[in-house]
């Protein structure tokens, strides 16, 4: 490809890179309504935007893929502790779908560097927040997720 796909700006941002994280959270796992502010962002880490689901089993891998395509730097998937799910099997299926062993995400792969699966119980706000912090630290070591570029110099389809 010869022509640039987007308008380019020569000046890089001066501020340090703050990775923008989309958290897809099961309501029954971490006590999320005590951790978020009215803007649906984590109070301790405002770069994390929280979307609540009744169960982690409702979270489609395609939604995480969409978020990465749209330029989110990382996606957190949070469900109940493994072995326990309020709806019996939601976190099991979510885990299998995201790890790529279960339909409808059986054979697709997404950027494993930018997606993190956390399985935390309702009593574990502290471990959850520290894991969010370490995930953000990890994302800071990666380059920003550029919407127009899939990492191989090709334009994204979306």
């Amino acid at each position: 490809m010869s022509e640039p796909t987007v308008a380019t700006t020569a000046t890089p941002p001066a501020a340090p890179f703050v990775p923008q994280v989309l958290a897809l959270v099961c309501e029954r796992s971490v006590p999320i309504d005590e951790l978020i502010g009215p803007d649906q962002r984590l109070r301790d880490a405002p770069q994390v935007y929280v979307l609540r689901f009744p169960c982690s089993g409702m979270i489609k891998p395609s939604l995480a893929q969409l978020a990465l395509d749209e330029g989110w730097d990382g996606v957190l998937v949070v469900g109940c502790a493994v072995g326990d799910c309020h709806f019996r099997e939601g976190n099991l299926w979510a885990r299998e779908r995201f790890l790529g062993g279960r339909a409808p995400n059986k054979f697709r792969r997404m950027d494993q560097q930018r997606v993190s699966l956390l399985w935390r119980a309702a009593s574990e706000a502290g471990p959850f927040l520290s894991e969010v912090g370490s995930f953000c630290d990890h994302l800071r070591t990666l380059p920003p997720n550029l919407r127009s570029d899939d990492g191989k110099g090709r334009k994204r389809k979306r």
């Binding site: 490809m1 010869s2 022509e3 640039p4 796909t5 987007v6 308008a7 380019t8 700006t9 020569a10 890089p12 923008q20 989309l22 935007y49 979307l51 939604l63 969409l66 978020a67 749209e70 330029g71 989110w72 730097d73 920003p144 550029l146 919407r147 127009s148 570029d149 110099g153």
Partner: peptide
């Protein structure tokens, strides 16, 4: 609407010059 929200709130960054071309 959830997907629309994800699109709408996505960080709007422009690609740097060297990453965009070639």
């Amino acid at each position: 609407p959830i997907e629309d929200l994800v699109k709408e709130l996505a960080p709007k960054r422009e690609a740097p010059a060297e990453a965009a071309g070639d």
